[in-house]
Design a protein around this nucleic acid. Structure first.
Lengths: 110, 110
DNA sequence: TATATTCATCGTAATATTGCAATATAATAA
DNA sequence: TTATTATATTGCAATATTACGATGAATATA
């Protein structure tokens, strides 16, 4: 069916999944790394850096913006993107919290 | 097209994306949480706990197993699943490393 | 004004994912 | 042997994702 039954899961489960989905494509991982690397805002050099069509990059940027990981600012004819650090840190905590369950020190049970 | 162009990305970018994809569905998040919660091995109570058909749960379990986050052990007629802690910790490091870039302390640039 | 530049959006083709019923497989119990 | 139980696999239908060309909107430049 392709339709996730979100209503049967907790808010937290849906949130973790939604954030993970944002990271679940190498182009979006690459975009985020590039924004971090350049540190200052970058614009459409992403299209050059990464080897995808402009429309494709724009689509990935929108997904990252929609979930709140990045912000975009219009500067003349180009658009400057950067990490939304508050949100980024919140989401980092969420993922950490999820991955830290049960402190993983005992030996595997099977 | 629906076909990710993996070859144009780095190994790391593809790995982060692959791990994130495993977390990118609330059913898989719920399965992992449940395995952690019960701590000891659990079997097909997942079908009861989570409200999805047995075939669907089995499919999600296979994805988690394929990427290496969990291990399954046959015990009589049932199967005991548990976290693969070595892999889990490695993947946690990978995600942390990715999310820690640029230590996020300055103010946003736009 | 006319033209270029930069980015977003639309439409669409190809592929992937989700979910389930039906069926298969494997181990135990009667 | 014949059930029974627990899980996996297969085969679909519905929906989502990825990618890109074409086009649109906005700003800058000649």
């Amino acid at each position: 069916m392709g339709l996730t039954k979100s209503e049967i899961f907790t808010e937290e489960q849906n949130q973790v999944a939604a954030l993970a989905k944002a990271f679940a494509h190498p182009a979006r991982v690459a975009i985020l790394q590039q924004i971090f690397k350049v540190n200052n805002c970058i614009c459409g050099d992403l299209v050059e850096e990464i080897g995808l069509a402009q429309a494709t990059i724009s689509q990935h940027l929108r997904e990252l913006k929609t979930i709140g990981l990045i912000k975009g600012n219009i500067e003349g004819t180009s658009v400057c993107y950067c990490i939304d650090k508050d949100n980024w840190n919140n989401m980092k905590s969420m993922i950490l919290n999820f991955m830290d369950q049960g402190n993983n020190n005992g030996s595997d049970c099977c």
